[in-house]
Computed example of a mutant assay.
Amino acid sequence: MAVNYNSEPLLKVEGLKQHFSVSKNYTVKAVEGVSFEIYPGETYGLVGESGSGKSTIGRSIIRLYNPTDGKVTFNNVDISGKLGKSDREMLRTQMQMIFQDPMSSLNPRKKVGDIIGEGLDIHHTYKDKADRDRQIKAILAKVGLAPEHITRYPHQFSGGQRQRVGIARALIMNPKLIIADECISALDVSIQAQVVNLMKDIQQETGAAYLFIAHDLSMVKYISDRIGVLHLGHLLETGTTDEIFSNPIHPYTKSLLSAIPEPNPILEKNRTSETYDYKTSGIDYNKGTDHHVDGTHFVKCTDEEFAAWVKYDDNIKE
């Protein structure tokens, strides 16, 4: 479905910070002033290396963590502060999460039907037991599982099937936003393609928006409308998939994209990937501000860095 960027954003994150106090003298600054928007029906890909703060952002948005600072607006409701009963209920039904490891996120002592139906039980969104079973079987069919799977336990499924159960559990509440936290990284490559295609089909059908967190750039390119590049808790570059892949500005984005292997062995043999080390780069993320490159393309840097990077890029194009 086409995304209407003139409409109100479904999710608006402004200056989100998430700090974890480890001891009296040491605090981990996992997320530092991140801002982005997700529109209805859109897939926003969040990429970056392990430990860059991707999963922390997802968990802060859905309020598994209480944000240290910043504002999160979802469905025109500020969900970053103390939540009232109606706001909490809206958040719990309209926003869902698919977790990274399907085995550890599913209760091994519960049957699949009860795992998927837990949201229905908590929010009482069914008339009777027959209606509950009908809803669970319908969602199982939607994710490519059979009705008889309702009585099985998680250990009786393969990894791909377990992830489908996780997707079904998120979908049963008919949410407006699904946070997919590296939901394909634990799966085989062939299964990854199946799960991503399933997510795209479901999006076409339901109009749900995705925050797709991953470090597999080719998969992010395939599924995302817009992409945000994260490093050390800072959102360094954001734009449409085409803007990021065809015209990366930040050296970190360039190094990430240059690490994608070429399927052609002759090209791959001669390919050199760019290296980037924050400590020796001379770049200070804390001094950077958002600079507009083109269209929806923004990069976080100082005025001097922006002038140098864009001028350098223009010279390459010439």
Rank of each mutant, 00 (worst) to 15 (best):
E42M: 08
I150E: 08
I98F: 08
T68R: 00
I178P: 02
D303L: 08
F157I: 02
G288Y: 01
D188E: 14
W309C: 03
K12I: 10
G119V: 09
M1S: 15
R92A: 11
K300I: 11
K12R: 12
L211Q: 10
E49N: 00
I260M: 11
I283K: 10
Q100E: 12
S104N: 14
G15Y: 04
L267D: 13
E37T: 09
A259R: 12
V189G: 06
N76E: 14
L267Q: 15
Y126K: 02
P265N: 11
N107R: 04
Y5I: 12
E42W: 06
K221W: 08
D78H: 05
D69E: 15
L187C: 09
I116H: 03
K137W: 00
K54E: 01
H297G: 14
L267V: 13
K311I: 07
G144P: 01
R164G: 07
E318F: 05
G51R: 14
Q100R: 08
I167F: 00
H124D: 14
G58A: 09
T151N: 15
A170C: 09
Q135C: 02
N76R: 14
K221I: 07
G113T: 04
I122Q: 05
T275K: 11
N25W: 02
Q100C: 13
I57W: 00
R59W: 00
H292V: 10
L106E: 02
E8A: 13
V31F: 00
E49K: 01
I202A: 05
P108S: 07
V196R: 03
V293A: 09
N247F: 14
I249P: 01
S105I: 15
G84A: 05
G33S: 11
I150Y: 08
D188K: 10
L64W: 03
R152A: 05
G160Y: 11
F157R: 04
V293D: 12
I115F: 02
S258H: 11
G45K: 06
A186N: 13
D225L: 06
H292S: 13
F245R: 09
V28T: 05
A2F: 08
D277A: 12
P108N: 06
T206H: 09
T68S: 07
K279M: 15
R226I: 14
I150Q: 07
S7D: 13
M103W: 13
V293Y: 04
S50A: 06
P67V: 04
Y278E: 13
Q192H: 03
H215G: 03
T289C: 06
L64V: 08
T43C: 12
E8F: 08
M199T: 03
G166V: 10
F99Q: 11
I172L: 11
H250I: 15
L106H: 03
Y276N: 06
G160E: 06
G48V: 01
L235I: 11
D216R: 05
L235Q: 15
I98K: 05
L211C: 15
E237P: 08
F36S: 07
F157P: 04
R226G: 12
R226L: 13
R63Y: 00
L120N: 01
I283M: 12
K287Y: 02
D277G: 12
I213C: 04
G53K: 11
A186F: 07
V165Q: 03
S105C: 12
E148I: 10
R92C: 09
K137P: 00
E182M: 05
P265K: 12
P9T: 02
I57E: 02
A168R: 07
